[in-house]
């Protein structure tokens, strides 16, 4: 990747935390989707969705992040992921499975220079924020917030192998 090429992130909020996903990993965003529950599936699996003839699995992201489950309200959105994703220099392939993430609220698209992206600071940890930092790959400091780039591989542990 050329050094100067800027990165664009789709941002979203879960339990007040701001997260970002590379825009090229996102297929589409939906406001309303109807899903079918899967008996015996783990808690975070909301169900199966028919997306124009393809079946995708909808995930309650906050449960996957080991936070409390999200309530669905008018701000809730479903982010549909591509089957081939790129998180910074890491490639993730779901082997054809399509996933959707339920998020509390969608944020702006943020464009940034790759050099601005920082490692996760050591003071950000489960004890003082409630969020396990193993799900955060890198961060980007914004004017009045911190955008956390999701570590999808960690997040989808158990789904990818």
């Amino acid at each position: 990747m050329a050094v100067n090429e800027s990165l664009r992130f789709v941002t979203f909020y879960i339990k007040g935390f701001l997260f970002g996903l590379d825009i090229f990993s996102v297929r589409e965003i939906h406001k309303q989707l109807e899903y079918t529950k899967v008996p015996l599936a783990t808690e975070e699996v909301l169900g199966l969705v028919n997306l124009r003839g393809q079946i995708l699995t909808m995930i309650d992201t906050s449960l996957l992040l080991q936070l409390n489950s999200s309530d669905v309200n008018k701000d809730s959105r479903y982010i549909i992921l591509k089957t081939e994703m790129k998180i910074l220099d890491e490639n993730i392939n779901t082997d054809g499975d399509i996933y959707g993430l339920l998020v509390d609220k969608i944020g702006d698209v943020i464009e940034t220079d790759p050099s601005k992206i920082e490692d996760v600071p050591s003071n950000l940890n489960a004890k003082n924020s409630g969020l396990d930092i193993e799900y955060v790959k890198k961060i980007l400091k914004l004017d009045n917030d911190i955008m956390m780039i999701l570590n999808l591989k960690q997040l989808f542990k158990g789904y990818l192998e």
Partner: peptide
């Protein structure tokens, strides 16, 4: 089904019904 759901082992797949809903 995706890999995680396959592990439940009781479903051999899913399908879309005429009304657009997914069933197992």
């Amino acid at each position: 089904l995706n890999k995680k759901l396959k592990q439940i082992n009781l479903f051999s797949g899913a399908t879309i019904m005429g009304d657009g809903k997914v069933i197992l």
